[in-house]
Design a protein around this nucleic acid. Structure first.
Length: 424
RNA sequence: GUGGCCGUAGCUCACCUGGUAGAGCACCGGAUUGUGACUCCGGAGGUAGCGGGUUCAAGACCCGUCGGCCACCCCA
């Protein structure tokens, strides 16, 4: 019988790993909440058209990475490859955009890619989006809250902020023309992918890693020189605000985005600790997207961060919290009478001390084997019920982490005893 | 989609130039009647990813396939 495995690139997150995930998630939720962002929960499946219209027809995501399928009624659906499109769709549909909105969401995204470190087919993002605010102060806010998150998580010293402005669509058109003109003159020296993108998506040539292409790019026209006055001013303002908040950044004129809906400010948080997939958080402004998806013209800006990559970074820097012991108390109970006595007493104990993690031994076995399990569990105490205890209505408390005699007491005294000794 | 490396017990790995599988850890049991850790003794566990080929003989060599990792690409 062939065993069934998980789909390639779709991974289980095991209990020992979920500790770091929960740590990360609670930090993220706390920071977003503290800046006044409200959580929005969105479907994982949307109409395929939503992504085609927002992400862009000629992007790799839409061309070859989406999990699309026909619903039973023949409608084409897609497992969301990113979160912004669905968030915008929901904001429009639920009439949230009459006033400025600060929203965040979290969950799985799906792209059919070749898995490698920091990249899987089901991956998890947290997104934050702000709608209805056209000024760069909101761009700064999003960056500042992400910077706060890095500090809270203890990774701030190992991430770098890169920012750029890709301008209005008009400015980008003008630049695109200039770039294509220039690169066409050096067509032969470009790598194959870049030659292809000369037609399809020339701006993406800017972040090619191919050495020959990089050489050509060194003398290429610079996007910054083509920016419209407003983009230029907003970008300068963003720089001022970041400086005022003491958030260091580098301007990377070659920073572009893979999704078509971005304009003006774009930014990326990168690290050199994760190998090739070093971007842990990226975003930018998308002032045309709401209108493009059928809403009233509404400016927008947001970012997405990759939870897998953050967890990898926490591990690489050893700042994730340690995996706690499986239990505080492990209950040894030998024999059916002991089991009955223990069950009754433990329910009372759980009522009295709900924070205590109590694992009752199940499945039988000798005292010796049960004690071994108790030790393995990492529990601080073993509670022991055997024939003697049942006969006398007592329980034995044995400390597993420090030397000293074990104590017996009447069952009714147990909650008080443990409450008094629970302090670290 | 392309390339490199790699698939042997639950885990980490060994078995050198082909002769029919081993260690450590983990697991289970025991070392005086009801007491863990340390130690000792014993035990269980693998059709060597799968399929084909070469050979008297393949875990070792060859091909294919599936899977893993890393990189390209892409991107969070």
């Amino acid at each position: 019988m062939t065993t069934i495995r998980a789909i390639r690139g779709m991974n289980d997150i095991l209990p020992e790993e979920s500790v770091a995930w929960q740590y990360l998630e609670s930090a993220i939720a706390a920071v977003l909440d503290s800046y006044g962002y409200g959580e929005i929960r969105l479907p994982i499946v949307e109409q395929t058209a939503l992504f085609r219209r927002s992400i862009g027809e000629v992007t790799d995501i839409v061309e070859k990475e989406m999990y699309s399928f026909d619903d039973r009624n023949g409608e084409s659906l897609t497992l969301r490859p990113e979160g912004t499109a669905g968030c915008v769709r929901a904001a429009i549909q639920n009439s949230l955009l009459g006033v400025p909105q600060r929203l965040w969401y979290s969950g799985p995204m799906f792209r059919y890619e070749r898995p490698q470190k920091g990249r899987q087919r089901q991956f998890h993002q947290v997104g934050a989006e702000a709608f209805g605010i056209a000024t760069p102060d909101i761009d700064a806010e999003l960056i500042l809250l992400s910077a706060r998150l890095w500090r809270l998580l203890g990774v701030a010293d190992h991430v770098q902020l890169q920012i750029n402005s890709i301008g209005s669509s008009g400015a980008r058109q003008a630049y695109r023309t200039a770039l294509v003109d220039y690169l066409t003159g050096h067509r032969e020296a470009l790598d194959e992918d870049s030659q292809r993108r000369l037609q399809s998506n020339p701006l993406r040539i800017l972040d090619s890693k191919h050495p020959g292409t990089r050489e050509i790019l060194a003398d290429a026209p610079v996007l910054t020189d083509y920016l419209d006055a407003e983009s230029r001013a907003d970008f300068a303002r963003l720089g001022e605000l970041l400086q005022a908040a003491s958030v260091p950044y580098v301007v990377n004129p070659q920073l572009v985005r893979g999704l078509d809906y971005y304009n003006k400010t774009v930014f990326e948080w990168v690290t050199d600790k994760l190998g090739a997939q070093g971007t842990i958080c990226a975003g930018g402004r998308y002032d045309g997207l709401v209108e493009q998806l059928g809403g009233k013209p509404t400016p927008g800006v947001g970012f997405a961060l990759g939870k897998e990559r953050l967890v990898l970074l926490l591990e690489a820097l050893a700042v994730a919290p340690p995996v706690p012991a499986a239990a505080d108390i492990y209950v040894v109970n030998a024999g059916t009478a002991a089991e009955v006595a223990a069950v009754a007493a433990l329910e009372t104990l759980r009522d009295a001390l709900p924070a205590l993690r109590i694992v009752q031994h199940t499945g039988g076995g000798s005292f010796r084997s049960q004690l071994k399990k108790a030790d393995k569990s990492g529990a601080r105490w073993a509670l022991i019920w055997g024939e003697d205890e049942v006969a006398s209505g007592t329980v034995t408390v044995k400390s597993l982490r420090e030397q000293g005699p074990q104590e017996s007491m009447v069952v009714a005294d147990l909650p008080n005893y443990l409450a008094q000794h629970s302090a670290p």
